[in-house]
Design a protein around this nucleic acid. Structure first.
Lengths: 216, 216
DNA sequence: ATGCGGATTAAACAACTGTTTAAATGATGC
DNA sequence: GCATCATTTAAACAGTTGTTTAATCCGCAT
């Protein structure tokens, strides 16, 4: 599918520029000419290396995932041996820090936020390969906190409550910055936010757990 | 600013069509011709009644708010007399139901989700007039649960945790539908979700409150 | 009827979109 | 040196965009 493995320098530059533009402005608002001028290549290069703007978008998406895996290799899986509380703290902290990253990781988070809010065909792939495994991990983890008496749907709701507390800082960032900038004004503030989300969640799960299982 | 108050039928039809298109597809992806054909009016009408696509967007945004206020008049303010727990439950339930509405309310929610994730100049107006008052209300409400010993920034983090649990069902709806559709598959499921979010939050706040105030 | 003014229309406008073309470039093996 | 090939380039393409124009329509007071 790709030509000789000489340099592919042009291709990579397009990919990186595309990632930045798509993450920052979205698919529709990003023009092929923007990408190419930012990458310093000719307009026709996009259709030469990738066959269309849309397929470039898809490749930028998987490229984005590769970059993340390169920096956070196994990460979550390594926590299998830790006690439940530490696993929960690690999950929340990792998720929030990724979402708040200002570098390449942040581009990935922005791109994913767009994909989640307004999915293309690529979302199904992302959900199945990346998100569902982590979701399943939480499904096995949460009964350690709240007990086994809960409806499966309620367990899922708890999981969404955990994730939702983190996602808001990315998906509603402009709102957060206006209403309470102190919560994300510095790395320390973000660390504190992660800790508060963890404590909030732990308190909730622990308290709900003492009820030995409510029902639907 | 508006002409004679005869019918303004055309203007209203454009406004409604614009709201639907902007909510469904976003500002950039929506074309003036789409709006006009959906409204059954001439293309030039947009520039005649509103002077540009962008100012039509702004008017559609305030129109959207008017529609919401028409259906949920004072709502939140009426709860001043209720006990804190009921106020919290009412807030969460109202927020989630608005976010999940499938009618006009839902269009408003979609539009707001777009505006929050990718703000235009209109967001500042929306934040100050609509969101900040509700945020302040929560700022006064939360100490009833967790006590007064908390850092102001931590109180704000609690508030974001509350809101985040609700927002995820709108902002990450495509993801939720793929990972755990049961949490929002029916009105009953959504009601249950609201209840779980409330219980989750109440448990968290109550538990954190027993610590008589942690610190930063 | 007549003329006035807002409302509506079809048509055109210029700018921009993604994509294609065909020629030029440049390295590589012979 | 020459032919071959992928690569790069400027230019053009056809379609769409928001907006403007100028003509037409229509209700209504005169």
């Amino acid at each position: 599918m790709s030509q000789l493995d000489e340099q592919d320098l042009t291709r990579d530059r397009i990919l990186q520029a595309a990632l930045e533009s798509f993450a920052e402005r979205g698919f529709k608002a990003t023009t092929v000419r923007d990408i190419c001028s930012q990458a310093g290549v000719n307009v026709a290069s996009v259709n030469y290396y990738f066959r269309s703007k849309e397929s470039l978008y898809k490749e930028a998406l998987v490229y984005s995932f590769k970059e993340v895996d390169r920096k956070y290799p196994p990460a979550v899986l390594a926590s299998e041996l830790l006690p439940p509380e530490d696993r929960l703290r690690l999950f929340i902290r990792t998720l929030l820090l990724r979402l708040m990253d200002n570098g390449q990781l942040g581009l990935h988070a922005k791109l994913m936020a767009r994909e989640i809010a307004e999915p293309t065909a690529a979302l199904d792939y992302v959900v199945e390969t990346v998100m569902r495994p982590r979701f399943e991990m939480l499904r096995t983890l949460l009964p350690d906190f709240v007990g086994d008496g809960w409806d499966a749907a309620d367990i899922d709701r708890f999981i969404l409550s955990l994730i939702g507390q983190c996602l808001i800082y990315r998906h509603a960032r402009p709102m957060v910055e206006r209403l309470c900038p102190e919560t994300m004004s510095s790395p320390d503030a973000i660390n504190r936010t992660a800790e508060v989300i963890f404590e909030f969640s732990l308190a909730a799960l622990g308290q709900l757990g003492t009820g030995i299982g409510q029902r639907t």
